[in-house]
Nucleic acid binder design. Sequence first.
DNA 1: ATAGCAACCAAACACTTGTGCTGTCAAGAG
DNA 2: CTCTTGACAGCACAAGTGTTTGGTTGCTAT
Lengths: 219, 219
Amino acid sequence: MRTADGLSQRQERILSYIHEFMQKHGYPPAIRDIQTDLKISSTSVVAYNLKALQEKGKLNREGKVSRGITLPPSSIPVQPAGRSAFAVPLLGVITAGGPLPDPEDTSTGDHEMVEVPTDLAPAERLKDVYALRVRGHSMIDALIDDNDIVLLRFQETADNGQMVAVRLVDENAVTLKKLYHEGQRIRLQPANTTMEPIYTTPENVRVQGRVVGVLRSLV
Amino acid sequence: MRTADGLSQRQERILSYIHEFMQKHGYPPAIRDIQTDLKISSTSVVAYNLKALQEKGKLNREGKVSRGITLPPSSIPVQPAGRSAFAVPLLGVITAGGPLPDPEDTSTGDHEMVEVPTDLAPAERLKDVYALRVRGHSMIDALIDDNDIVLLRFQETADNGQMVAVRLVDENAVTLKKLYHEGQRIRLQPANTTMEPIYTTPENVRVQGRVVGVLRSLV
DNA sequence: ATAGCAACCAAACACTTGTGCTGTCAAGAG
DNA sequence: CTCTTGACAGCACAAGTGTTTGGTTGCTAT
């Protein structure tokens, strides 16, 4: 029995298990985690199928390294929405215009919490959602303006065109842009026809999260 | 040497190293990764500082598990802010021609609550605030799109140009528009250049509330 | 049949990685 | 001066974890 992707049922289950595990724990599963929870008789079977999945491009592995499994964005399934509301921390301010210096202040104390209904933000890993207040008008065409609050889900990678909070290492700055991979470089595109994109290298960008929601005050 | 957070320089470096490592690899670093790359002489020193960081709430660890380090969102370097939140009821949906639940029955039924930060709408004014989900694109130029949630403050009058939810008595319909007094008539103006305004009489309009905020999901 | 092959199994093996000592050293406290 | 404490160093061990080897099973084409 095979699916449309050419994956066996067991491989499908392994793939979705890896995804669930990473959502739940924040780090990849070990082969024995997969074996135990999926009730597979031997680690070698898991290794066998992981190798197959890898050859099919469904996942990446860091050889020999513990828990060195990575999922490419294409393997991440769509999540069903949950029910209840939840609170996310409003961690600070992000500039949507030109990138401004980031004081590197990780601020220990309690943050303002923004409670959001689950139909407004994904019921994925709640602890990975946080909020930032927007400064600047560079995302105006995406219906995001100065003083809006954006909800972000913490993730380190981004697909083409996703709206993300990006940290520019060399400039020591954080900014809100749409991210495009263009061969050896990265294009950070404002959603404002009057503003120019920023071009930089993959080494210089650290994705800090993807925009999943917007709040605005009109008072 | 300590920072404002009460972290030693070494702890700061470990924290940002963990973040960078996760950005780069997609999984957390092992203690020896930290040791080697940060040129720390012993794994026990890393363990010592990780324990300290954990006690300060700067990271979470899964005991005994390889690479079982996770970062809470609060450890993601951004610019900090702070205040508190308040809850308002999500009463229903507003569409051109659709009925609007009476905003005064807030105490009656069980409604989904939308919690909003006080700096998105000041707390003193939140007693008369409620929320509606938007259907349609008629307010697109005001950066309000289909499926957005609008926060409204209950009021029965409106100044020129204010964005309000109005009930048209004769049509028994409710709509979200900008309201203008024009002599003997009222103009209800969509914020969409492709749509025409509605003209009617003051007797026919009942202002239900004024838009004071917007929430949007992008997922 | 029988050879080939994908998928699976079991156990052993070897590397990876967290942890637990045992010390050292400098700065304060008493 | 001695004692305590925080921070660090070195080392060894044990647990965690990926890999390998030698099988088995069920199916199919020859």
